[in-house]
């Protein structure tokens, strides 16, 4: 089941772990959302988490960021280089964020009545020191911090291609722009690892290509990226390693090539038995997962690559609306 891990393409030392998740189990009443999931994420890698809807991907994210506390297991994080591993469990979300873990949301959660610039500034300023009194009196260091955060916010907006929209209200931005603004806001907190929850949902093919470039660029700057995504083309093109979840359990982990050939994964997505999946794999030359629409539920079959790209975008678009 667990594939032996290979060295990622990243340049950072391979032995340093950003996330060390040891057998976490998360239950809601009788429902087990995550069942004994383990995951080792290395510094500087792009790790994708895939799986059908309801597989527990977002639950995993929430467990890693302190929103949920798993009943069993341990989550250790050392987001920035040289950090001592610290347990996330029981810590408040904002504390986890201060440990260097930033995230975006599946259903966009921007501060829609603030401008794009202000959204990013909120992120940047959580690392600043000046308090209310220095703000009321307009003390020099407060003004300096204010200037710093504005300058830095403009840089970040420029980086995600929103420099021209800085003074627009976040709520009035286009869908794809809102997704990128969320990433900019998360980057504002200066994270060592960023968790992206379906960043490509509802975006068009051009935006997807830009997003892939952005993710790779973020990674190149030394930020580890943990990515939930349904768009297989995007996942396969950027991820160094992939973790596959189904029904709250880890069913596979490995490089994109390994995952595409993994019968358990194909079975999970096609909703067939593993043997059928193996024969299916044997009869086709091209990697199977490229041809499967992974945005639907496991029982839903889609066929060709072309279709999956188009329908995947629309399906995700519908889903990405106010949930």
């Amino acid at each position: 089941m667990t594939t032996a891990t290979t060295t990622p393409a990243g340049k950072a030392p391979a032995d340093e772990l950003v996330f060390d998740v040891r057998g976490i189990t998360l239950r809601f009443g009788g429902v087990t959302s995550l069942n004994d999931v383990s995951l080792q994420m290395r510094r500087g890698e792009i790790l994708a988490v895939i799986g059908p809807n309801g597989a527990g991907k977002t639950s995993l994210f929430n467990s890693l960021t302190g929103v949920y506390t798993p009943q069993e297991g341990e989550v250790l994080v050392a987001a920035r280089s040289g950090d001592e591993p610290v347990s996330v469990l029981g810590k408040k979300t904002h504390v986890v964020n201060h440990l260097g873990v930033a995230r975006t949301f599946q259903n966009i959660r921007l501060f829609s009545a603030l401008t794009a610039l202000e959204n990013v500034k909120v992120g940047i300023e959580t690392r600043q020191k000046s308090g209310p009194i220095s703000a009321m009196l307009g003390l020099p260091w407060q003004r300096r911090e204010e200037k710093d955060s504005t300058a830095k916010a403009y840089q970040l907006l420029d980086r995600v291609g929103l420099a021209g929209r800085a003074n627009e209200l976040a709520g009035s931005l286009a869908y794809g722009e809102q997704r990128r603004l969320e990433i900019a806001r998360a980057l504002g907190t200066g994270p060592g690892v960023i968790l992206l929850d379906e960043p490509a949902a509802g975006t068009n093919p051009v935006e997807k290509r830009e997003l892939a470039a952005l993710i790779q660029q973020i990674n190149a700057d030394g930020v580890a990226v943990l990515l939930i995504e349904h768009d297989m083309k995007l996942v396969m093109s950027v991820a160094h390693r992939i973790l596959v979840l189904n029904f709250g359990q880890r069913i596979a982990e490995g490089t994109p090539e390994q995952i595409q050939r993994d019968p358990a994964v194909v079975a999970a997505y096609l909703g067939t038995s593993e043997e059928d999946a193996e024969t299916e794999l044997a009869t086709h030359d091209q990697p199977e997962l490229q041809r499967i629409d992974l945005s639907g539920d496991p029982l839903h079959e889609a066929s060709t690559t072309e279709q999956s790209e188009g329908s995947g975008a629309t399906a995700a678009g519908e889903k990405g609306g106010p949930a």
Binding site: T93, N97, L110, F111, E118, S130, R185, G188
Partner: peptide, 23 residues
């Protein structure tokens, strides 16, 4: 100021504000 924006952030979306590091 920073605090004013944090207030707005909390008002708009408390979960997102927490995840962005706002106490």
């Amino acid at each position: 100021s920073r605090l004013g924006r944090s207030w707005a952030a909390v008002r708009e979306d408390e979960v997102a504000a927490q995840a962005t590091g706002v106490n």
